[in-house]
């Protein structure tokens, strides 16, 4: 039982969720090294947890929630605050069209960024996002609307969701 949950569980979890976890980390921390540290912390927590997941979606939602919380903790930490976020190099801020969209997404306030990412990339519904982020569905609607509006203003008419 324990043998199964060590080797196989690690491989499966990394295959399925590494992209999502890394994306959340990078979107919050906007820094490759910090994102990688957070990525390892999150999977370490995953392997040490005694939580029993009911299904794959449950597991994914748990990882999503833990990733967001971990990134918020890092952003609040003393170590992170003493280095200005503006001084951190931004390797992805390039001039290509995808990078321009990404740049604007990353510049969104975290609450809009979470809603936009989870809805447009991960495909969660507003109700699911509300449950995941522990807020009301109306709030998620509002965040999605404002996030879209901000992106539209910055990227112009040749932008679609």
């Amino acid at each position: 039982m324990h043998e199964l949950t060590s080797k196989d569980k690690i491989k499966t979890a990394l295959e399925k969720h590494s992209n999502m976890v890394y994306r959340i980390c990078f979107m919050y921390l906007k820094n490759k090294e910090e994102a990688e540290d957070a990525f390892q912390d999150i999977f370490l927590k995953y392997i040490l947890t005694d939580k029993v997941f009911e299904c794959e979606e449950h597991e994914k939602a748990w990882l999503c929630r833990v990733s967001i919380n971990r990134c918020k903790d890092i952003l609040k930490s003393f170590r992170f605050k003493i280095v200005s976020i503006d001084s951190v190099p931004e390797p992805y801020y390039e001039t290509s069209d995808e990078k321009a969209v990404l740049r604007e997404v990353l510049k969104l306030p975290p609450k809009y960024k979470d809603a936009i990412y989870l809805h447009y990339y991960e495909g969660y519904t507003s109700a699911q996002i509300a449950k995941l982020l522990e807020c009301s569905e109306n709030t998620i609607y509002s965040h999605l609307s404002r996030g879209r509006q901000m992106l539209k203003e910055r990227l112009g008419d040749n932008f679609e969701y």
């Binding site: 060590s6 990394l14 976890v21 994306r23 040490l48 995808e98 997404v105 932008f159």
Partner: peptide, 30 residues
């Protein structure tokens, strides 16, 4: 050019080395 969020976020992906390192770290911990 039509831009969309999904394409933009697809550009973010973890380094394969990071996944390998993490896998080894987790194995050791386990």
């Amino acid at each position: 050019i039509i831009l969309n969020i999904k394409d933009a976020l697809d550009t973010i992906s973890p380094d394969p080395n990071l996944i390998l390192r993490t896998e080894l770290l987790l194995m050791a911990k386990a």
